[in-house]
Amino acid sequence: MMDESNPYLPYEVEIKETWYETPGERAIKTFKVDFVDSSVWDTWSHKPGQCAMVGRLGVGESMFCISSSPTEEGYLRFSVMKMGKVTRALHQLEVGDTMTVRGPLGNWFPVNEWEGKRIVTIGGGIGQAPLRPVINYVRANRAKYEDLTVLYGSRTSADLCFQEELECLISEEETTCHLSVDVEEESWEHYVGFVPNLLMDVSPSPENAIAVTCGPPVMIKFVTQNLVKLGFEPEQIYTTLENRMKCGIGKCGRCNVGHLYVCKHGPVFSYAQIKDIPEAFA
């Protein structure tokens, strides 16, 4: 847990491994980190979907989801897309460098309540980062869930994150995994088209199912519409919201959609919770 007496103080972490998930101007780089003070692990615990403020002293901090599942022990993972000041500064860091982590923050996917159900994840681009801990949590607790279906797409095949793990998901028998790219490319064996269309192509049954979707706002919008078409109730659909954040603890004011603070009441929401709050889709 965070320093209870001062929620603004970050922990220092050391980068143990780092690699690029995707290339380009908006490259995504993954960091595997460990606390400099290893006693932090005694009190640290996070759940799938929770986030943390990751930063560099002298530059600032930004919100990222913890993309490792709590079932992966001894490290935390973050996958960072290069966007602006803080993310650029993070991308400069290499193995052995330190960064700061303040968290875990926010709520989480209620994976305990979902036990006994069929889990369907629908991700787009960097939106796979918050889904990764859900997928790995379910895989580590396979007996507790009926089955797992992973739908994931991005603009091109080079923009897919976690490629090695996707190979695993495709080859392992207990998981159903469908990938997509937006436009046709050479030697691509999977679906071609947008993620909402992939969803309709696969048409998972809403029976005893939970659908979790993360990705760009337009994708979430159409995926949600399609899930409803497939017969999913608003209570069966979960997503995460994103807004600009500074404090991460419901104080600085900026992340609200209606009366909900995304950093505190979220980032995880069921569609039932937000469907009547227009600002959630602004």
Partner: peptide, 17 residues
Amino acid sequence: CHCFDIQDEVEVFDGRR
């Protein structure tokens, strides 16, 4: 009104948030 921003400021090696 209680909203705030958080910024880092650095002077050579000495910094503050």
